[in-house]
Nucleic acid binder design. Sequence first.
DNA 1: TTAGGGTTAG
Length: 623
Amino acid sequence: MSRMRSAFTACFTSNAIHDKGFLGFLRHGTPALTTTSSCCRVIALLRLHSLSQSPTCPNPNHIPNHLTKLQQLLLEKSRVGFDKPDDALRVFDKMHRMKPLPSVVDFTQLLAALVKTKHYSVAVSVFSKMCSFGIPVNIVTYSTVINCCCHLKHIDYAFALLAAIFKRGFIPTIVTYTTLVRGLVSQDKFLEAELMFSYLLQHNQIEPDAVSFNTIIDGLCKTGNTSQAMRLLRYMEKKGCMPCVVTYNTIIDSLSKDRLVDDALGLLAEMSDKGIQPSVVTYNSLIHGICNLDRWDDISKLFRDMDRHKISPNMHTYSILVDAHARDGKVKDAEYLIELMIRRGQHPDVVTYSALMDGYCLRGELDKALVVLSTMISKGILPDTQTYTILINGYCKKMKVDTAITLLEEMPMKGLTPTVETYSTILDGLFRTRRLDEAHMFYRKMLNQGVKLNIVTCRILLHGLCCNGLAGEAMSVFHDMESCGLLPDIHIYNILIHGLFKDGKVDEARSLFHNLRLKGLRPGVISYTIMIQGFCQEGLLEEAYKILLEMEENNCLPNEVTYNTLIRGCFKNKMYDGACVLIDEMCAHGFKADASTTSMLFDLLQSKEQDPALLAMQKKFMP
DNA sequence: TTAGGGTTAG
């Protein structure tokens, strides 16, 4: 197991750590910016333009007949894309033999057509052919190819192209820079993205528009800095750059995910004050957030609001609802929602069906999940990585880890790449079935394959070690985690404290618990209950009771599990008076004795022991 | 003329 530890360190030292940094120019005061904004004027002009044009808005499918055949083809293809990249290559072949040579715009449109159908690598190779044939390119061509490199995760190539732009004397535009910033964000390099954006602003290299602000706002939200995203929204307004529906949607979504649904609803109201029309995406994010809080009444309100705005629910909306019901165990309702969406002309996809499968797997009804899978396949919808992960989880929870591993091995043959979640699920399965050596080997394999561990993998690893009596090993892994800069959360501490108590390491458990606040973490009801259980096990009833008082002082109310744990502790330690008081207190809070407490109580009431406190208790419960 | 464009579901 110590090999597991060193492997763990190696993995984390090579991983980038998210930093909750925020825009330097907001933190250190605002430099002189000249954003009084041609961008806003452009937006305003565009708005006027679209308003005045709207009655006779040109048909986007209409192709003017003064264009050459080639131009017509390219215009059409840049709209719909090429089905087969080979077709684009053939067109390119013809183009570069034409005399006179088609214009740079024609060639750039060919690239745009490839981007449309996500054939990024083909676009890059066409571009390099263009360069070697000496076909002229311009800043738009470069920006298009930079975008392709970013999508291909070759951010270094993208920056090499920026260097080439400077070398050839072209001037990058806001689009070029925003594309690069977006590339950095998508590669988890948010700090660099932020640095680049604020540098460009400070040096007046760009006049940021809503899209460029949205890109940074998106990055802030994705790195857990929603409040900074809010500040940037206010900043862009102050600078006269109008936020758009996407700006709001990005922040509303992030707030909803942070469970701050009321703040998100506040932004919805703000949109309406400013005359910004919400979209179905706005509502979907809100519905998702509200579902997570089980505020069903609010969902009906939102649906009425959508109706008022003439916005119809789409596939995402239904999928969110299917998922919420399935997770809540209401699989029949989830099934009904799928029927309803079909009746309303929406087509459930792999996400929708997988959500339903997950619902069945969570209930342990693997057979029904498999029925959903075959329904899905019969409709021509192929399972994806997430579907496999859900099924693998279903099999692991049923202790059928070998079948789960077979599914994992099947994935590459189906063109699917398992994610860290897929691997972590199997790791959990191996630990649950106490196949420790295999868990170890599997973990090594994960690391060798370059799987980037996340906090959930750490939880599974620590939990697996603790449950198998290896709390000491878990502690070593935990210290490595800390020294590698990965921030342990409260769940990690709960797992460790529980494990340490199980191993009889009371002092270590106590000191971890006391360190929580130093680490900026707040113990929750689960943490306190684990402490109570641990102390009770060790016969330290006084300390256990002190924890109960401490949690109340800290406004963390004990729940049914907390009371039952402490009451059982009293029983075990023959503290029958205390148990009686606690039982009354528990009932006064509306909680009940659980099965295990009840059976202990029952046994005690039958007992022939002559303890005066026990006799008093017998008198109380069996008068 | 041509490019970034996002945001939502498992």
